[in-house]
Amino acid sequence: MFKKIAAATALVLASSAAFAAQPNTFYAGADVGKTKVDDFSKRDTSVGAFVGYNLSQNFAVEGGYRRLGDYDIGVMSYGGAIDNGSVKVDQAHLSLVGSMPIGESFSLYGRLGVNRLEAKLSSPAYDSKESTTKALYGVGLSYAFTPAVSARLEVQKPASDGTNVSAGVAFQF
Rank of each mutant, 00 (worst) to 15 (best):
F2C: 12
F2W: 12
F2Q: 12
K4T: 09
I5Y: 14
A10H: 11
L11G: 11
L13K: 05
L13V: 08
A14K: 15
S16D: 13
F19N: 09
A21I: 03
Q22D: 12
Q22H: 10
P23R: 10
T25W: 14
T25I: 13
T25K: 15
G29V: 05
V32Y: 11
K36F: 11
K36L: 09
V37H: 03
V37D: 04
F40P: 06
F40R: 03
S41L: 15
K42C: 09
K42S: 13
R43H: 12
R43I: 13
T45M: 14
T45S: 12
V47D: 02
F50W: 06
G52R: 02
N54D: 15
L55D: 10
L55E: 10
N58H: 11
N58R: 10
F59R: 00
A60W: 00
A60D: 04
G64L: 01
R67M: 08
G69P: 04
Y71R: 01
D72M: 04
G74T: 00
G74E: 01
M76A: 11
S77R: 10
A81S: 08
G85P: 03
S86N: 08
V89L: 05
Q91H: 00
Q91E: 05
H93E: 02
L94F: 02
L96E: 02
G98N: 07
S99Q: 06
M100P: 00
P101A: 08
G103R: 01
E104Q: 13
S105D: 05
F106A: 04
F106N: 00
L108N: 03
L108E: 01
G110T: 00
G110Y: 02
G110C: 10
V114S: 06
N115Q: 03
E118W: 06
K120Q: 13
P124Q: 09
Y126F: 15
D127I: 11
S128Y: 14
K129I: 13
T132L: 01
T132A: 08
T133D: 02
L136H: 00
G138I: 02
G140V: 08
A144K: 08
V149G: 11
R152Q: 13
R152E: 07
L153H: 09
V155Y: 00
Q156I: 02
Q156K: 05
Q156E: 09
A159F: 07
D161F: 09
G162T: 11
T163A: 08
N164S: 15
N164C: 13
S166A: 12
A167N: 11
F171V: 14
F173E: 12
